[in-house]
Amino acid sequence: MQIFVKTLTGKTITLEVEPSDTIENVKAKIQDKEGIPPDQQRLIFAGKQLEDGRTLSDYNIQKESTSHLVLR
């Protein structure tokens, strides 16, 4: 499924993911596309910070959901 990640600069990154993917996996995909190390990434969805060990389905992130990327 596709999800979108919006950066603070207003850029939207499109990612191909599975509901069973962990947040860690998603951060690795963002690193592949954008070159941002996962330890600098914070992903926010529905006002919550997403934890590495959880999956997209844990957070009820469905296709075409948009989460926000904040850099630390």
Rank of each mutant, 00 (worst) to 15 (best):
residue 19 P to T: 07
residue 4 F to Y: 13
residue 54 R to M: 12
residue 15 L to C: 02
residue 70 V to C: 11
residue 45 F to T: 02
residue 66 T to V: 13
residue 65 S to G: 10
residue 44 I to A: 05
residue 48 K to Q: 14
residue 61 I to F: 06
residue 21 D to W: 10
residue 67 S to F: 15
residue 61 I to H: 02
residue 25 N to C: 12
residue 62 Q to G: 15
residue 39 D to T: 10
residue 41 Q to H: 04
residue 64 E to G: 15
residue 17 V to H: 02
residue 34 E to F: 09
residue 62 Q to P: 10
residue 66 T to Q: 10
residue 72 R to I: 15
residue 49 Q to P: 11
residue 63 K to F: 10
residue 8 L to C: 15
residue 33 K to E: 07
residue 7 T to E: 03
residue 51 E to L: 10
residue 6 K to T: 12
residue 4 F to M: 08
residue 25 N to F: 12
residue 72 R to M: 15
residue 49 Q to M: 13
residue 29 K to A: 06
residue 49 Q to Y: 13
residue 39 D to I: 09
residue 33 K to A: 12
residue 37 P to E: 06
residue 47 G to V: 02
residue 42 R to A: 09
residue 57 S to H: 09
residue 14 T to S: 09
residue 6 K to E: 07
residue 64 E to I: 13
residue 40 Q to L: 10
residue 51 E to P: 03
residue 72 R to V: 15
residue 56 L to W: 03
residue 32 D to W: 09
residue 27 K to F: 03
residue 28 A to G: 09
residue 68 H to F: 15
residue 36 I to S: 03
residue 69 L to G: 02
residue 55 T to C: 07
residue 32 D to C: 10
residue 59 Y to D: 01
residue 13 I to W: 05
residue 55 T to E: 03
residue 9 T to M: 11
residue 49 Q to E: 15
residue 2 Q to V: 15
residue 57 S to E: 11
residue 54 R to I: 04
residue 3 I to G: 01
residue 16 E to M: 13
residue 17 V to M: 04
residue 1 M to T: 04
residue 42 R to T: 15
residue 13 I to S: 01
residue 35 G to I: 02
residue 24 E to R: 14
residue 57 S to F: 09
residue 40 Q to F: 08
residue 67 S to K: 11
residue 5 V to Y: 03
residue 57 S to T: 08
residue 53 G to N: 12
residue 12 T to K: 07
residue 2 Q to L: 14
residue 58 D to R: 02
residue 18 E to I: 12
residue 31 Q to G: 07
residue 70 V to F: 13
residue 68 H to I: 15
residue 67 S to D: 10
residue 69 L to Y: 02
residue 37 P to L: 06
residue 19 P to A: 09
residue 35 G to T: 03
residue 32 D to F: 11
residue 37 P to Q: 06
residue 6 K to R: 12
residue 51 E to I: 08
residue 31 Q to S: 12
residue 25 N to M: 15
residue 26 V to P: 00
residue 37 P to V: 05
residue 61 I to P: 02
residue 26 V to S: 00
residue 66 T to C: 11
residue 30 I to W: 00
residue 51 E to W: 05
residue 32 D to G: 09
residue 42 R to F: 13
residue 65 S to R: 07
residue 18 E to F: 14
residue 55 T to K: 10
residue 4 F to A: 06
residue 35 G to H: 06
residue 52 D to E: 08
residue 10 G to Y: 04
residue 31 Q to E: 09
residue 38 P to Q: 12
residue 34 E to C: 15
residue 48 K to E: 12
residue 20 S to G: 11
residue 2 Q to H: 12
residue 24 E to C: 08
residue 11 K to G: 07
residue 1 M to H: 05
residue 50 L to D: 01
residue 67 S to A: 15
residue 22 T to A: 04
residue 29 K to N: 03
residue 63 K to R: 12
residue 34 E to T: 15
residue 5 V to C: 03
residue 6 K to G: 04
residue 3 I to H: 03
residue 27 K to Y: 04
residue 55 T to V: 06
residue 3 I to L: 09
residue 48 K to L: 11
residue 11 K to Y: 12
residue 6 K to Y: 10
residue 49 Q to K: 10
residue 26 V to F: 03
residue 51 E to A: 08
residue 47 G to S: 04
residue 58 D to P: 00
residue 68 H to W: 15
residue 38 P to H: 10
residue 19 P to G: 07
residue 56 L to T: 01
residue 18 E to G: 07
residue 44 I to C: 15
residue 69 L to S: 02
residue 71 L to C: 06
residue 9 T to R: 11
residue 32 D to M: 14
residue 13 I to R: 01
residue 46 A to R: 14
residue 20 S to Q: 10
residue 66 T to F: 10
residue 23 I to P: 01
residue 67 S to W: 15
residue 71 L to W: 06
residue 20 S to M: 11
residue 9 T to S: 13
residue 15 L to V: 07
residue 19 P to L: 09
residue 67 S to R: 12
residue 39 D to V: 09
residue 66 T to A: 09
residue 23 I to T: 04
residue 64 E to K: 08
residue 47 G to W: 04
residue 2 Q to P: 05
residue 58 D to Y: 15
residue 25 N to P: 00
residue 21 D to H: 05
residue 9 T to K: 11
residue 20 S to H: 12
residue 68 H to C: 13
residue 41 Q to F: 14
residue 23 I to Q: 01
residue 28 A to V: 12
residue 56 L to M: 04
residue 31 Q to T: 09
residue 67 S to L: 15
residue 4 F to E: 06
residue 42 R to S: 10
residue 8 L to A: 13
residue 11 K to A: 08
residue 58 D to H: 10
residue 13 I to K: 00
residue 31 Q to A: 14
residue 53 G to T: 10
residue 14 T to I: 14
residue 49 Q to V: 15
residue 16 E to P: 04
residue 40 Q to H: 12
residue 46 A to C: 12
residue 15 L to D: 00
residue 25 N to L: 13
residue 45 F to V: 03
residue 47 G to R: 04
residue 67 S to T: 15
residue 50 L to E: 01
residue 59 Y to T: 02
residue 32 D to H: 11
residue 4 F to I: 10
residue 47 G to M: 04
residue 3 I to C: 02
residue 19 P to H: 06
residue 36 I to A: 03
residue 59 Y to H: 03
residue 4 F to R: 09
residue 17 V to Q: 01
residue 56 L to D: 01
residue 39 D to Y: 12
residue 69 L to P: 02
residue 62 Q to E: 11
residue 41 Q to M: 13
residue 12 T to M: 13
residue 34 E to K: 04
residue 50 L to W: 02
residue 1 M to G: 03
residue 15 L to T: 01
residue 49 Q to F: 13
residue 65 S to V: 09
residue 45 F to Q: 03
residue 48 K to F: 09
residue 66 T to S: 10
residue 51 E to Q: 10
residue 35 G to V: 02
residue 51 E to C: 11
residue 61 I to Y: 03
residue 5 V to A: 02
residue 28 A to F: 12
residue 36 I to C: 04
residue 40 Q to S: 08
residue 3 I to F: 05
residue 9 T to I: 07
residue 2 Q to M: 13
residue 67 S to P: 14
residue 29 K to H: 04
residue 47 G to T: 04
residue 48 K to C: 10
residue 72 R to H: 13
residue 47 G to N: 06
residue 52 D to H: 06
residue 10 G to L: 03
residue 41 Q to Y: 13
residue 50 L to I: 04
residue 62 Q to R: 11
residue 61 I to C: 02
residue 30 I to S: 00
residue 28 A to L: 15
residue 42 R to P: 01
residue 49 Q to R: 10
residue 39 D to S: 13
residue 60 N to K: 08
residue 42 R to L: 14
residue 42 R to D: 09
residue 10 G to Q: 04
residue 62 Q to L: 12
residue 31 Q to C: 13
residue 64 E to T: 10
residue 27 K to A: 01
residue 39 D to L: 09
residue 24 E to Y: 15
residue 13 I to Q: 01
residue 29 K to F: 05
residue 30 I to P: 00
residue 16 E to T: 13
residue 19 P to V: 07
residue 41 Q to W: 06
residue 72 R to N: 10
residue 63 K to Q: 12
residue 23 I to N: 00
residue 58 D to T: 04
residue 53 G to Q: 11
residue 20 S to D: 11
residue 3 I to A: 01
residue 35 G to S: 05
residue 21 D to C: 07
residue 69 L to N: 02
residue 46 A to K: 14
residue 6 K to F: 08
residue 4 F to P: 03
residue 52 D to V: 05
residue 54 R to Q: 08
residue 2 Q to T: 14
residue 71 L to P: 07
residue 50 L to F: 02
residue 2 Q to W: 12
residue 45 F to K: 03
residue 46 A to M: 15
residue 11 K to M: 09
residue 54 R to Y: 13
residue 37 P to G: 04
residue 48 K to D: 06
residue 57 S to Q: 13
residue 29 K to R: 07
residue 31 Q to K: 10
residue 52 D to A: 07
residue 40 Q to K: 12
residue 66 T to Y: 09
residue 27 K to D: 00
residue 47 G to Q: 04
residue 7 T to K: 04
residue 25 N to Q: 14
residue 1 M to K: 03
residue 23 I to W: 02
residue 45 F to R: 03
residue 18 E to Q: 13
residue 63 K to V: 09
residue 7 T to S: 06
residue 22 T to Q: 04
residue 35 G to W: 03
residue 42 R to V: 15
residue 2 Q to Y: 13
residue 55 T to F: 06
residue 27 K to E: 01
residue 6 K to D: 07
residue 31 Q to Y: 15
residue 34 E to V: 15
residue 59 Y to P: 01
residue 32 D to N: 10
residue 70 V to Y: 13
residue 43 L to Y: 02
residue 69 L to H: 02
residue 38 P to C: 09
residue 48 K to V: 14
residue 9 T to Q: 11
residue 33 K to Y: 08
residue 32 D to I: 13
residue 51 E to F: 07
residue 45 F to M: 06
residue 52 D to Q: 04
residue 17 V to W: 02
residue 68 H to K: 07
residue 68 H to V: 14
residue 58 D to S: 12
residue 10 G to V: 02
residue 4 F to Q: 08
residue 58 D to C: 03
